[in-house]
Design a protein around this nucleic acid. Structure first.
Lengths: 151, 151
DNA sequence: TATTGTTATACTCTATAACTATA
DNA sequence: TATAGTTATAGAGTATAACAATA
């Protein structure tokens, strides 16, 4: 007989959040060594693949408002990782791109993300990791999780 | 050959956070119908199992400071779900317990958590859900994830 | 009128640390 | 001195909405 009132750890949602928060918190501590936040890492990693990109497009992808992107971009420009360029065709618009310094730092940050994954998921077997990754990617696709809701 | 620079969705940490944030965000929207936050749900669910409990003990379990617990407790008392009682032996100490109203609301909130889990994980097979739950619980045990790092 | 990006303001959540009362 | 709980203050992160420039 199952308990009348389900407990916190009976829910996959709670277990997922418990583990996810630990993993992300540890990753944030790693990134601190480079004076970079998790949001900033996501920002520059997205630019690494498809620059130049408009602030509006980035806002949609990251699940933030345009105002929040402005402030994130300001910080990354101050750190020398990102540059703004005005669009020639539409003078209201801008594009954001990585600087040479930004291009250099992204692989370093990616390596830190690899290390963090190894720390937390290295204890799983290869097949367990693959199954978990496939399951999560299926959910991402099924529910069209394109942008990241705020932590 | 693997890519030179790992991408966001190559990391289990990122996928976990993406899914976890969607699930938790949706749960928070559900709880809004009862004017309850996720932290408040966690608080009352913990009291449901082991009341009375001291604010200090709850702070450790929830991974918050004592000051944060004071404010959470204030809110839950204002909502009529929780009551403070002063300890007879040690007059510095207190215990927190659920009111009758609090005892009634916990099963309703637990049902909402069940529904949220069904919404997000109901598409998985029984064996997939069991495997995921076992894997997450193993990680919780292995890394001694007793308290919840801040979202 | 609508859109792009910026800015001013406010809100939520939390930590830090000073504080009161008690041990 | 140390501990339990409270409170004042500040900080980070974000949203909302008003704004200027351009379409």
């Amino acid at each position: 007989m199952s308990p009348a009132v389900s407990g916190l750890t009976d829910h996959l949602g709670y277990l997922l959040r418990l583990v996810s928060n630990h993993v992300s918190y540890a990753f944030a501590r790693r990134l601190e060594a480079k004076n970079v936040t998790v949001a900033e890492w996501t920002f520059v990693r997205m630019l690494y693949d498809e620059e130049p990109v408009s602030p509006s497009a980035l806002a949609k992808t990251m699940g933030l408002t345009r105002g929040a992107i402005t402030k994130l971009a300001d910080r990354l420009i101050a750190k020398g990782f990102v540059a703004r360029k005005s669009d020639q065709k539409d003078r209201r618009a801008q594009t954001l791109r990585l600087t040479a310094k930004g291009e250099r730092v992204v692989p370093e940050l990616a390596a830190m993300a690899d290390e963090n994954d190894a720390q937390w998921f290295g204890g799983l077997s290869r097949s367990e990791r693959d199954a978990l990754k496939r399951l999560l990617r299926d959910m991402v696709a099924r529910f069209a999780m394109t942008s990241m809701p705020i932590d």
